Amino acid sequence: MLNRMIKQFRLQVQSINEVEDSHSSTVYKCTLLRGENVYLKIPYTQLKCQRELEAYEILKGSVSIPEMLDYWPGDKECPGAFLLSELKGKPLSAKDSSIVAFQVGVLHASMHTVQPPAKQVLTGIQNEYPTWATFIENQFYSFARDVKDVIDERLFNKALERFEGMKQQLPSPDGPSFVHMDFRPGNIIVDGTQVSGVIDFESVRFGSTEGDFTKLYRDFLQHDEALYKAFQEGYKSIRPLVDLEVVLPFYQYTDAFNSIGWCKRRGIERNALFLEENLVRLKTWLK
């Protein structure tokens, strides 16, 4: 399939390396003969491919994203493929400064200002905002079928009870907004002290902003109060920010639970470390 896509996009390739930190698609970094880097991306499903395609159309000019250089709509053997420009830099890390965290807040808020297009008919990106509570509940109980095979029955039943109790405390949803659903350091590219942009749109929705902070907080913001404060300041410079102290506990909890189910679906052995991390998180929440 890789060779086929290289021919499809007529690429003159010097070297190819598979990108490891990609969970919903196969991505290759291709260095062309003239020295330019481009990315060849093949989503796992047609739905993910359509979401990605629509996201590039919706976000272009509003949010810093890679340029879609070419697109192939796929066939029976492949759901489709994208040829993307390179955002200069490396994924966001805990070593980045408060200056960067402020820019990440601006980037995130800019994405959240994007609302469902009035005239464009979308077939990939769903608008979940009108029934956001049902959407979150359906996600939780979908993963619950997998979690049940991983943890003991007593802990499982306790986890369900905690979910039902916590969801009653949520405020009204904030939106409708374009939400990334996987806004984590690996998908935020930083070049020195400048944020280059955001990548990967296979999971995007229109919905409430409140659930879109969880992974960034889990993997970046919670480790440094200065970064957390700078992010909030950056975000608020663009749009109002939901009360994270109110909504984050619920979404942190559901993230830990759902991630256990994700590990079961994707392979417990391959994701053993991530599984253990989330088992610890879940048990801590249930103490």
Rank of each mutant, 00 (worst) to 15 (best):
L59K: 08
V150A: 03
G186T: 13
S259Q: 10
K7I: 00
V147S: 06
Y71L: 12
Q50A: 13
T209G: 00
N271E: 06
L87H: 08
S62N: 12
Q50Y: 06
K158L: 13
K95T: 07
E67P: 00
R239G: 02
I42Q: 08
E161L: 13
E137T: 12
G207K: 01
E18L: 08
K90I: 09
N37K: 11
T123F: 09
N157E: 14
D212P: 15
D96C: 10
Y28F: 14
L160K: 08
S93L: 02
G165L: 13
D174F: 14
Y44Q: 13
F143C: 07
D191Y: 02
I65H: 04
N258K: 07
E57Q: 12
Q103I: 09
V38T: 08
Q50K: 15
P185C: 08
F82K: 05
Q46E: 15
K29E: 15
L84P: 02
E128Q: 13
G267C: 04
G124A: 05
E67D: 12
R270C: 04
L241A: 04
F135H: 15
Y217M: 01
V13N: 04
V38D: 00
T31K: 15
L53F: 14
Y251S: 08
V204E: 01
V38M: 06
V195R: 00
H112E: 01
S85Q: 06
V247C: 13
K90A: 13
E276W: 04
P249L: 06
D174A: 14
N138D: 14
